[in-house]
């Protein structure tokens, strides 16, 4: 498996560290209800098919990446910089 980092180009999977689902981008406010925190930390859609999740380009540019990929075929359709997405 290879990922195409927007900054570094096409790179080996071993350069990246997986974190988890896109849910981690939507951190609730500190005073949000417990259920929101449960959803953020624990509950997952866990799709068989298209998903979006967070990878860290550890051995490259050290950027967080939002990767669109298919959990059944392992095909990767899009890689975005989290930093640019938020801006």
């Amino acid at each position: 498996m290879r990922l195409t980092c927007p900054l570094c180009g096409d790179r080996d999977r071993r350069e990246f560290t997986y974190y988890g689902a896109e849910d981690y981008l939507h951190r609730p406010a500190a005073e949000a209800p417990l259920a929101d925190w449960d959803g953020y930390l624990h509950l997952r859609d866990n799709p068989a098919g298209e998903t979006r999740d967070l990878w860290y380009h550890e051995a490259g540019c050290a950027q967080w990446l939002l990767v669109s990929r298919n959990t059944v075929t392992h095909a990767i359709s899009k890689v975005e910089l989290v930093a640019e997405r938020k801006a």
Binding site: M1, D12, R13, R14, Y18, A21, N46, A48, T51, D53, W55, T71, V72, T73, H74
Partner: peptide, 12 residues
Amino acid sequence: FYTSYAQRGNLP
């Protein structure tokens, strides 16, 4: 380490 339903893994 990444979510998958493929029933096959990768080489690393």
